[in-house]
């Protein structure tokens, strides 16, 4: 039985976030299949309960990808998204859970290299830290 594969969830905004992922794919870049893209209209839609629920449901790492901060399609959406992510990170840290499991990224739709970079980084975190549940194993 091969070792358990890491599970990464990426909440991507439907604007620059998803477009960046699409451009990466279309420009011939591959990335780890561990990532599960969940699309939201704006990274500001994401709140702490979505991120924590994803961790509860078995994600080893979660990221939120939104537009560049001064260039958000919905003006201040990615700023809000970042605030939520920071709140989760400090909550996790307070609980003795590694805060690097959760991270916020910003990209513009033209940054073809960014999405694979993000996935590589989060997959590495997920592999290194393993599942949150004690003793490893699945779920």
């Amino acid at each position: 039985m091969s070792e358990r594969r890491p599970k990464v969830v990426g909440f991507c905004c439907e604007r620059h976030g998803l477009d960046a992922a699409v451009l990466a794919a279309r420009s011939g870049r591959c990335y780890d299949a561990s990532v599960r893209i969940v699309k939201v209209p704006c990274s500001g839609r994401v709140d702490q309960t979505h991120i924590l629920q994803a961790l509860e449901d078995g994600a080893d790492a979660v990221f939120v990808l939104g537009c560049l901060e001064k260039n958000c399609h919905y003006d201040t959406g990615s700023i809000e998204g970042r605030k939520r992510v920071e709140y989760v990170r400090s909550t996790l840290a307070d609980l003795g859970i590694e805060k690097e499991r959760v991270e916020m990224f910003n990209a513009s739709s033209t940054m073809a290299w960014k999405f694979p970079e993000i996935v590589t980084r989060m997959a590495e975190v997920a592999k290194r830290l393993g599942p949150i549940a004690k003793g490893g194993g699945d779920r």
Binding site: Q48, L95, G96, I132, K134
Partner: peptide
């Protein structure tokens, strides 16, 4: 409600982590 949901998730994760 949001803070309640957040705390529930957070404590579940903590319990999971500590078995």
């Amino acid at each position: 409600e949001k803070e309640v949901k957040t705390l529930v998730s957070a404590l579940r994760l903590k319990a999971k982590k500590e078995g």
